[in-house]
Amino acid sequence: MKIVCRCQDVTEEEVVAAIRQGATTIDEIKRLVRAGMGPCQGRTCRRLVSQIISRELKKPMAEIYPPTFRPPNRPVPFALVMAEYERQAAEDRKKAEKSARPDKAAKPAKEGKHP
């Protein structure tokens, strides 16, 4: 028995079984057997999973549908998220107050993609 995903204790047999059921992508395997859903978010096991898909489906690695990357990069506590966000908002407000033209005040909260 070979462990593929250490975070979630997923074995090679389980990954192969998912492929036999029709899975052809890293995302499907993640959803079916949880390989890649651990705290490291698949950083450790993603490559191994692609290798198994490639081997089982006899497809070159480059042809395997790429997985979606989901933030955050590293586990982050609620308290820190809030503190950081509020700090940034306060900074933006300060900048806005300083700016000579009040009509061009910066928006406090910014909606946007992750870095």
């Binding site: 859903m37 705290p39 978010q41 979606t68 989901r70 933030p71 955050p72 586990p75 982050v76 506590p77 609620f78 308290a79 998220v81 809030m82």
Partner: peptide
């Protein structure tokens, strides 16, 4: 409040 977020989608 100390729980850590690992993934969002």
């Amino acid at each position: 409040s100390g729980l850590r977020i690992v993934r969002q989608w």
